[in-house]
Design a protein around this nucleic acid. Sequence first.
DNA 1: GAGGTTCTTGGACGAGCGTCAAGAATTCCT
DNA 2: AGGAATTCTTGACGCTCGTCCAAGAACCTC
Lengths: 204, 204
Amino acid sequence: MTSTDDRLARRQVDKFSERRRQLADAALQTLATQGYARTSLRDIAKDSGFSVGVLHYYFRDKVELITDCVRRYKAACVERYDAIAAHATDPETLLRDAGDGLAATLEQDALLHRLWYDLRAQSLYEESFRLDVADIDASLERMIWRIVTAYAGLVGVEPRCTPGLAYAAFDGLFGQALLRHLSGDADALDDLRAGTRVLLERLV
Amino acid sequence: MTSTDDRLARRQVDKFSERRRQLADAALQTLATQGYARTSLRDIAKDSGFSVGVLHYYFRDKVELITDCVRRYKAACVERYDAIAAHATDPETLLRDAGDGLAATLEQDALLHRLWYDLRAQSLYEESFRLDVADIDASLERMIWRIVTAYAGLVGVEPRCTPGLAYAAFDGLFGQALLRHLSGDADALDDLRAGTRVLLERLV
DNA sequence: GAGGTTCTTGGACGAGCGTCAAGAATTCCT
DNA sequence: AGGAATTCTTGACGCTCGTCCAAGAACCTC
């Protein structure tokens, strides 16, 4: 009989991956507040309430832990951005919803987005992150493209730019807004909304 | 007589700041190839041909050295980007020159630009860099705005966007192009040229 | 060339890092 | 209940880091 073994194995796997998830979430939290370069395993352990050794029990090394964090960040990203999906039935509403959506996630998850720009910059130096980062970039590009095509559809035209250009422009806009928001610029969110509107109108 | 003292002081100051320049340049080189988080004083010393102690003779601590490097990077940036100044007398030529200029500096100074994105991300965590980074950002924004207004002038209209939005969009475009270029994407430079053209046409 | 200033070296220091292993503590199954 | 399997703690390891200092080299002035 393998059914008992299976059940056993499954239960153990579940517990194992549940603890992994727990630790990775704590690590993601620590990474977001301290940044990649300034986060040590001891910091993560302290924040998670476990000891340092347990991190090496559930993750082979630091790279595997961080990579797992990045993947979890990606999942959070996709989920978060899908909420900005364009449900609007007229162009004006979509323009407003898109700007509000970007501004809302910028404000609520500022530290996670900061971590994203940090990790993307690090991926230019550390080969090991590059694939996951490219994966996240691609999903963000699709998210932007959904908004662009939705707006174009409501206006009744075809987009006049590539998905890559649209994402690049919005990414730059978002990055600058994040920089200013974290520096205490009170106009950052409103400028992001206004910029979103202008970019959408001009790019389609 | 103070003339001798003055001469002496000046000569020593000159030697002192000359050595500082030499060390900071070496440090900038090392930073560009290894990234901020992975560059130690020993790496810089090795690359410069001096010992570690001499770095502390000319710079109070690591922060002062890195800050000096960032300032020198800024000077190089301004000089470099001024070369993309718009001399064109017709819109079409300017569109081509701007795209070529951005693509050229991306290709020639890819590692320095990579360092820029690294340092800008780090400035979101380390307060000490933030002012210098904001300074560089502002000068880059002015550079982009010169191109935008020059194009608008040749077309005979007023720009229909803010300097901040224009810079954000171009910065995003440039950043994505750098990411792809460093990842070995052969189309990155051409896409940057094409994207520059589209952005300029749409934003004015 | 002596004497004083400036420059440079090389190594020591303590702290923090990732990693790891031995064993204690806990959980699980029969 | 008790033995087996697991989960977790503790502490040590070798290493690199920024910083600092004593000593000597190089240089300049008289």
